[in-house]
Amino acid sequence: MDNKRPLILITNDDGYRAKGINVLINSVKGLGEVLVVAPDGPRSGMSSAISALQPLRIHLEKEETDLKIYSCTGTPVDCVKLGISQLASRKPDIVISGINHGSNAAVAVIYSGTMGAALEGAIFKIPSIGFSLLDHSAQADFTYSQEYTRLITEQVLQEGLPIGTCLNVNIPKGDDLKGIKICRQTSGQWVEEFMPSKDGVNKQVFWLTGRFHNDEPFDEATDEWALSQGYVSVVPVKIDMTNYDHINKMKSWENLK
């Protein structure tokens, strides 16, 4: 192993067979040694979940020059933890997650297993990126996203990121991408989230559905606006969720009896 070359740890939440992760692997080939540790099946919506009540199993799926691919029975965060602590011969230089089938812009960053994995990399003080394409189809066309996944990965390898920060990168689908916009997360929420239905014995069940309500559709500083205009949105995301602006306003609480 050439320790002078970057070690790239890759994972996702759609499973190691997903088209998106295989496109991502191909897009970063040649940048360094690639270690893939990804779930053995879909794990969407896992956020930063970990497997605390059952053991994890891994299986070596593929090995060739500068590439190893492992499947894991756990969550995306489990994959990052195992990759760093058990499977990598040294600390990875970068963690990249994706390419997710579907958007992780705005508040979706909270629920996303793709971004949970990127945040886990940041917890380990490793520059990390989550990539997503705005197309949920299993056969989504990632052709025009590969240029940006490689460019942004190269940039982070060269410049690094602040400790405790990762990138949430979302890419519009199509062949007319206008470039990159550095953005903030859009304010909004999911509404009408469940569709009532019946199961096979006529018992009520609920299917997760709904739509995203954008509170600020015309704000050019946001990721949803950038995506609507055909730009790749890049949002720096922090692990530290403290509302520092509100700390001083709450200081009087320390005198409560």
Rank of each mutant, 00 (worst) to 15 (best):
T149E: 07
D135F: 13
I247W: 06
N3M: 10
I163Q: 04
W225Q: 02
K178Q: 15
L87Q: 03
P42I: 15
L53Q: 15
A18K: 09
G20M: 11
L161I: 02
Q189G: 04
G20P: 10
E216V: 14
H213I: 00
I8C: 02
E193D: 03
G74N: 08
A118Y: 00
Y231L: 08
F131A: 08
P127E: 04
Y244C: 05
A52T: 14
K91P: 01
I84P: 01
F194N: 05
T222E: 09
I10R: 04
M241S: 07
G179C: 11
E33D: 08
S233N: 06
E224R: 09
K19E: 14
S47D: 12
R150A: 05
H136Q: 12
N170T: 14
S252Y: 08
E254K: 12
G116H: 06
S132M: 08
V169A: 08
I239K: 10
V191W: 02
W207L: 15
I94G: 03
F194T: 14
G98W: 06
P162F: 06
G121Q: 01
P236M: 10
H59R: 15
D2Y: 09
D2E: 05
Y148Q: 12
E61G: 04
L167M: 05
A226F: 04
W190Q: 07
Y244E: 11
K238P: 01
I163G: 02
V36Q: 03
S44C: 12
N12Q: 04
A221R: 12
N202H: 07
A105P: 03
D78G: 06
S48P: 00
L151A: 14
D215W: 05
Y148W: 14
N100P: 00
C166S: 09
Q229K: 15
A18R: 11
L167A: 01
C72L: 15
R150P: 04
Y70I: 06
A49I: 09
M250E: 10
S89G: 06
Q204Y: 08
F194Y: 13
